[in-house]
């Protein structure tokens, strides 16, 4: 890892200011991706601005039929939260299956979605639940947030402050995981909210996305009968040593069916 300036801040405003002063700064949340990336010299920021001391970024609450999770809330805290387990149990289970216990004690919701690893779990939930990403500048709808592999709508000096999840009538997440990394080879989150059924897919393609073809086959119902007949664009699927594009396309449908069944 190359040396950098470490900046510890205690407020969102101070973090933004530190970033604007930095030559080539990066925010660090839980650091569970950032630090390995820096160790491998795949990133070498001039300044690392640590959000770990920003108290206003942590916390879980339910307000006006929305579950609001602060960006620096750890996966362990989301998984163990009675409020999350009550409001959106599928989200608590998802958080409890990210990485491993030690990673969950450091990794955060905001860090996960800002990094947007194409195999991360949270993006599927953010998309399927129709969440809104609140940042230091604005509110971004889930569908506009994830723009490409490791890319989001965030500006360089913009910080995710919280994510607001409308409470669904039913929701479930099914992940076919890599047994070594626990990342999703394919993960599918299905949610029925306000009479509409949405499908969020991660791991399958370069970018977490809504499964519009799958949603069309479901037709607003939690009935997976039409999923087998869906034709997915195999040429857009990721293909690597873990799974071929054809296998991933198959897994998307299998995970969708399992998630729909788990919603019932």
């Amino acid at each position: 890892m190359y040396e950098f300036n470490y900046r510890k801040v205690d407020s969102v405003a101070a973090a933004v200011e530190a970033m604007q002063q930095a030559e080539d700064g990066k925010f660090v949340a839980g650091g569970q991706t950032m630090l390995p990336t820096m160790k491998h010299r795949l990133a070498s920021p001039s300044d690392l601005i640590d959000l770990g001391g920003v108290a206003e970024l942590t916390g879980i609450s339910v307000e006006n039929e929305n579950l609001i999770v602060g960006a620096m809330t750890t996966h362990a805290a989301v998984a163990a939260s009675a409020e999350v387990q009550q409001a959106i149990p599928a989200l608590a289970r998802l958080a409890g299956n990210i990485g491993d216990p030690a990673v969950r004690n450091r990794g955060t919701l905001g860090g996960s979605i800002a990094n947007h690893d194409p195999a991360a779990d949270y993006p599927a939930a953010v998309i399927a639940l129709g969440a809104t990403v609140q940042t230091s500048k604005r509110a971004i709808p889930a569908e506009e947030f994830f723009t490409g592999m490791f890319e989001t709508a965030l500006k360089d000096d913009e910080i995710v402050t919280s994510v607001s999840f409308p409470l669904p009538e039913a929701a479930a997440y099914m992940k076919f995981e890599n047994p070594a990394s626990r990342y999703a080879i394919v993960g599918v989150f299905v949610a029925k909210t306000g009479g509409e059924v949405r499908v969020g897919v991660t791991g399958a393609t370069a970018c977490a996305h809504r499964g519009f073809r799958l949603e069309a086959a479901l037709g607003g119902e939690l009935d997976a009968g039409g999923i087998d007949a869906v034709e997915l664009p195999v040429e857009q699927m990721n293909s690597d040593i873990h799974a071929s594009a054809e296998y991933r396309a198959h897994l998307v449908k299998v995970m969708t069916k399992r998630a729909v069944e788990a919603c019932q």
Partner: peptide, 13 residues
């Protein structure tokens, strides 16, 4: 009081 991977945390943190 919580388990962490000490290779994935800075001393300064």
């Amino acid at each position: 009081g919580k388990s962490v991977k000490s290779c994935t945390m800075l001393a300064i943190q």
